[in-house]
Design a protein around this nucleic acid. Structure first.
Lengths: 346, 346
DNA sequence: GAAACAACGCGAAAATGTTTCGCACAGTGC
DNA sequence: GCACTGTGCGAAACATTTTCGCGTTGTTTC
């Protein structure tokens, strides 16, 4: 018995493409590099053959000449959270000599149809990314299965849900952060503390709610459902004003995002209430630190730099083949007391 | 007599490096690609020779999945201007099926030494970027020369200085924008209008100053140097407060950036002055539009989306080989009147 | 209408860089 | 002294890009 009867289907090479088209490999090379000196007809035929044979240049030595490329997918860039995360990742990319490519999942169509579908994952993989970082976005089970098939390492940053325990994730301890914020207000003497949260579809936001409740309970207080809003951040301001009209209004608000906190402060100011004299406000994430607001926000600082660095080194470790340190890292938050909180009146 | 007696100093090649070190080109190649099978001593000697000869491989990195890659270099990501620009560029990248790679020039070292040096440009070219977009950053003449040599198209977005007329640039009409802002205040009845600008090293900021002055002159007013500050944005707030202490204080401020305007509003508020009741404030760039500030900022809207799209299509056209529509595009600004301006008191 | 000319498309060969494979040599065990 | 083994390196094979010249085609000139 000699070797296998059929050809072992070697990878397509420039010569094989040239042979199929019936031109020289020089011509094929020119087409692939968009060099002049080739007719449009030949150009088209070469492209067809390249597609047909699924040709890819071999000089691509994935781990050699070119640097590794990591794709970072944001749900949106329209907030400072994304910006600071990107900044941290770029710094980490420089340090590790990898190329960080940022993209938004659906820059044109914000509809729910533009999720990360399996075919999209395959397209990403074909583009040669060595790893994938997904920021505050849920990956479907199908998408994850495709990633596993393609051996494409994925790390989720601040995942909305801990859907799959096998997916590595890096985030911060939301429950503890909310505890810190609420305990700060309790420590100032507040007893009626409103909670203005985002939609409870995000696990992190649910954890913040739970932390808020735990802090209240630890202080011997019951949660008052009239003081809790989870309608999403667009209605944060009106919701806060609504609570202030209650017979026993809150003296402080814990708002589970910084933009939401700013919206609350804005609406309170329009309603004639001063922060922190009349009402205290605590935000979350510390993404607006550099912003010279009239009243600087007391907020929970999430270590985005550290989260970014950790996520990057995790995905790099996975690319190298080693298992990540832990599948679900949560970094510690810290409270930053600025100007928007004070002891309640009287 | 034959040709020139001395060698014309050709570009270093693998063979020349190998000759200098006294090894084969295979060994040099292994060193450069971090392949095993080379002793540490040889590795070091090769690295030395590479540095000495300033060797760079002539073959470029292959394009990712066939798509072109455009590098966008920001001076910093720590502001919403960069964020919105990046967002616009990513959207344009999706539309044109090119990969947008964002990076900051010096993520670690903010010193002036980290400019875009020629060798850095070569490194970029080697990584296979088809074009370069530079945001609010000056390129040195040397760097531009290298770009021209390498045939690497460059488009400057909002360049600090119109150094080289041959470099394509896309920006907005700063002079006209400042005119609009100042005319708005004049139209409301203001006659004492303070100008708080950034450092006048940036051409765009100088143009804004000129537009401010032109509007005043068109209204028959003289510029009062006591009402002009160009100390940079860090001192914007204190400068505004200082002007309010003048015997004939301004009734309005034109601040030539949005963060600066917010800083001014913050300091005015701390000094007990209400905006817009006591003082009006106009900002510039409209980068904080989505921000729920207590008083929404009246500002000059610069069309960052359009600027980004235009810059991207310009660099793509240059890659295709066609000349850009124009070398120095300036897009029109528009005034967005919100809450921070009103007629002067009494 | 023919000769001269210009432009373009293409391939052979040279140039450049990467990978494979085998040789030489040093150290080690018997 | 002989076999064995691992390491460092280079020759040659391989993959791709670039240069340069040749032939074809279409156009202008007389």
């Amino acid at each position: 018995m000699d070797s296998m009867p059929e050809a072992p289907r070697r990878r397509a090479t420039l010569d094989s493409v040239a042979e199929v088209v019936g031109v020289s490999k020089a011509t094929v090379s020119k087409v692939l590099n968009d060099r002049p000196g080739v007719s449009e007809a030949t150009r088209l035929r070469v492209h067809d053959a390249v597609r047909l044979l699924d040709y890819a240049p071999t000089t691509r030595a994935p781990e050699s000449g070119g640097r590794r490329r990591i794709l970072v997918l944001f749900d949106t860039l329209a907030n400072l959270y994304s910006l600071r995360m990107l900044d941290a990742l770029l710094a980490g990319g420089h340090a590790a000599d990898v190329e960080i490519v940022a993209d938004v999942i659906a820059p044109l169509d914000p509809g729910p149809a533009s999720r990360l579908e399996p075919h999209r994952i395959r397209a990403l993989w074909q583009r040669g990314y060595a790893g994938l970082l997904v920021v505050t976005t849920q990956l479907s089970r199908d998408a994850l299965r495709v990633c596993a098939e393609l051996d494409l390492p994925v790390v989720s940053i601040d995942p909305p849900n801990a859907l799959d325990p096998d997916v590595a994730s890096v985030g911060s301890n939301n429950w503890s952060g909310a505890m810190q914020a609420t305990e700060h207000l309790l420590g100032l003497g507040h007893r009626r503390i409103g909670f203005v949260g985002g939609l409870a579809t995000h696990a992190g936001l649910r954890e913040r709610r739970a932390g808020y409740r735990s802090a209240l309970e630890a202080a011997g207080l019951d949660e008052d459902s009239a003081l809790v809003s989870e309608d999403g951040m667009v209605s944060a301001g009106p919701e806060a004003v609504r609570m202030m009209d209650l017979v026993d209004p809150p003296t402080a608000f814990f708002v589970s995002s910084d933009p939401g906190a700013l919206a609350v402060m804005r609406e309170l100011a329009r309603a004639g209430l001063r922060v922190p004299d009349d009402v205290s406000v605590v935000g979350y994430d510390d993404t607006y630190a550099a912003l010279p607001a009239p009243v600087l926000l007391t907020t929970v600082h999430t270590p985005l730099d550290e989260i970014g660095r950790t996520a990057l080194s995790t995905v790099l470790a996975m690319i190298e083949g080693s298992a990540p340190l832990s599948h679900h890292l949560q970094l510690a938050t810290s409270l930053v007391v600025r100007e928007s909180t004070a002891a309640p009146r009287g």
